[in-house]
């Protein structure tokens, strides 16, 4: 990596700020996008919407028991990228994905792969809480039931309780499990959606701006929950909040115009980024 660093000569005649950052013109990924024991691997991933190339040759690993944050300006491709990880882009007409993405060594774009099962293994939580128009209990029970994960009512009850406990919601809803999920507050609804994702035993949870519709207190509860969930799952979170990325993640990936510009330990990216574009973005100097 040292070799990738660019050090501009200042010269005594024009003593300007020395930059050890990689120049804005360089579109190669800096930092290390790979981990030793990945849960998911992405290699040379490209995403096209018709003729438009939205993701450009991105390679990145998702580690086990880590939170990796995807940051970047609107339209940079971060949401498009995470939607590749459970083939959510399949539902978009004209969208084409090339390259290879694996989960536990299995190419998730293999033609014979069961996409429904994949989306249980790689769950997703969206920007706006989207509970089913059903009871709290049914919101959780629906997934395990259709995936055949339980064989008795007692087992289902236990799974619902455990999922709600893991999502930090059990104590708040245990006495009203049969009331509509849509009657909960925004933060509670989002935790219900997280519980719903957890109920089908995922390995990875994708979160696309999960707190953008929540107040600071509900956000703090979700962030605390993300930290706990990391013990069991890999989490990929897209966020526009730099502070949130720095609070919840261990690694951060910065996207710009479809390129993965920089990946690194979150503490490094936010204090001493390697690329000028990353520095511009996280310090609010984006042109």
């Amino acid at each position: 990596m040292e070799q990738a660093l660019i050090r501009e000569s200042t010269g005594r005649q024009s003593p300007t700020l020395v930059s050890r950052r990689v120049s804005r013109d360089n579109r190669q990924t800096v930092g290390d996008p790979f981990v030793a024991d990945p849960r998911m691997t992405c290699r040379n991933v490209n995403v096209y919407y018709g003729d438009k190339r939205a993701i450009k040759n991105v390679s990145l690993d998702v580690g086990r028991n880590e939170v990796i944050a995807m940051i970047g300006p609107s339209g940079c491709g971060k949401s498009t990228f995470i939607r590749c990880l459970n083939r959510m882009n399949d539902t978009i007409e004209g969208c084409r994905v090339t390259g290879e993405i694996t989960l536990d060594g299995q190419n998730i774009y293999d033609s014979g792969l069961d996409v429904v099962a994949l989306r249980a293994q790689v769950g997703m939580v969206f920007q706006k809480p989207n509970p089913f128009p059903k009871s709290i209990y049914e919101n959780i029970a629906y997934g395990p039931r259709i995936h055949g994960l339980v064989d008795s009512k007692a087992a289902l009850d236990e799974l619902v309780e455990n999922s709600l406990k893991k999502a930090g919601l059990w104590d708040e809803v245990k006495d009203r499990l049969h009331e509509p999920g849509t009657g909960l507050s925004g933060g509670q609804q989002q935790r219900l959606c997280i519980a719903r994702a957890i109920a089908v035993s995922p390995e990875v949870i994708l979160m696309d701006e999960p707190c953008s519709a929540l107040d600071p207190m509900a956000t703090a509860i979700i962030e605390d929950l993300i930290d706990e969930l990391r013990q069991h799952y890999s989490i990929v979170i897209v966020t526009h909040s730099m502070q949130q990325a720095s609070r919840v993640s261990q690694r951060t990936a910065f996207f710009h115009l479809g390129d993965l510009i920089e990946v690194g330990a979150t503490s490094q990216v936010f204090t001493n980024p390697l690329h000028e574009l990353t520095e511009d973005y996280i310090t609010g100097r984006f042109g």
């Binding site: 730099m242 502070q243 720095s246 936010f270 204090t271 001493n272 980024p273 990353t278 520095e279 996280i282 310090t283 609010g284």
Partner: peptide, 10 residues
Amino acid sequence: MRQPMAIDLR
């Protein structure tokens, strides 16, 4: 007010 990052923080 700003929650500075990177060079601003430094």
